[in-house]
Write a protein that binds this DNA or RNA. Structure first.
Length: 272
DNA sequence: AATGTACGCAACCGCCGGCCA
DNA sequence: ATGGCCGGCGGTTGCGTACAT
């Protein structure tokens, strides 16, 4: 099957959009919506291909786009999500309201990659011989959508927890004074959390989706401390995730991701 | 002030998968 | 089952601007 390139037709304009074109596109979409991108430019009177219109709208003109620099929290979120998801920019963008995949991709390539290189200086665990995970996860390795696949974490947020084989408990401590925590910057956290490791039964229950509340699920397995970690008032609680049947697994991932990043930690226990 | 270089960002390109006739 | 259309995605490019020399 051979497809003609999107903008092969002669006469279609390329390159930067003018304010007039923007106005035409916004006015048209506000009035009629964008049911069919391919037909839209003709109907709106634009000499652009539908793909170009769609990109301009989704990456720049959409009213819900957050403009301006990324906050430190957003940058940390991108770094951590990238560790979990790899180069799945759209998936990362879905977790950052108001940000587009294109924007996140640009920020990653221009700012955050450099930041990581700095963080991977000789003080990092792998440089000290503590962790042997020198590369960021490849996208195929980082997928968290299949339950048989495992999470892999790069060296950005080196684990600070200690796992005790005696009581099967992962514990970690955070506080305002803990400067080694990079994931909770700007957050006024001051609590200690000790959590047992998530075992197979936990994840099978997650996947079975036969419960209604993530709090119930986590609490029944790990006690109220885990909920307390997640319910720090300065960050989202699990309730924000709208846990429900089909996306229960991913939502629990989000929940745990928040629980641990809030505590300045990425959970190694998420290896399933 | 002029020129060269590096950087950031918007936009494009090509591929893929879902849907439908 | 096949082929075409369409939207979405990730990778890449190229222009404009900031900074350095």
């Amino acid at each position: 099957m051979v497809r003609a390139p999107c903008c092969e037709k002669m006469g279609l304009k390329k390159g930067p959009w003018t304010p007039e074109e923007d106005h035409v596109l916004v006015s048209y979409i506000q009035q009629y919506g964008h049911g069919n991108w391919r037909a839209l430019p003709k109907l709106a009177g634009l000499l652009r291909c539908g793909k170009s219109c769609r990109l301009r709208w989704t990456n720049y003109l959409r009213p819900d786009i957050k403009r301006g620099n990324f906050s430190r929290e957003e940058e940390e979120a991108i770094i951590n999500l990238h560790q979990m998801l790899g180069n799945r920019w759209s998936a990362i963008a879905a977790r950052l309201p108001g940000r587009t995949d294109n924007e996140i991709k640009n920020v990653w390539h221009t700012h955050l990659k450099k930041k990581l290189n700095i963080k991977q200086s000789p003080t990092t665990p792998e440089a000290l011989g503590q962790v042997s995970e020198p590369e960021l996860p490849k996208p195929e390795d980082a997928s968290c959508h299949a339950k048989s696949e495992s999470f892999e974490y790069g060296p950005v947020s080196p684990p600070q927890c200690t796992t005790s084989s005696a009581d099967d408990t992962s514990s970690f401590t955070t506080s305002e004074n803990n400067n080694s925590s990079s994931a909770n910057m700007g957050m006024n956290v001051d609590y200690e959390v000790s959590l047992p490791e998530a075992d197979e039964s936990f994840w099978s229950e997650v996947l079975s989706a036969d419960h209604n509340s993530p709090n119930e699920l986590v609490s029944s397995h790990f006690g109220d401390q885990a909920i307390g970690a997640a319910e720090n008032p300065q960050v989202n609680t699990s309730m924000d995730y709208g846990f429900s049947g089909s996306n229960m697994y991913e939502n629990c991932m989000d929940f745990w991701y928040d629980v641990f990043t809030r505590a300045g930690e990425i959970p190694e226990l998420l290896d399933i």
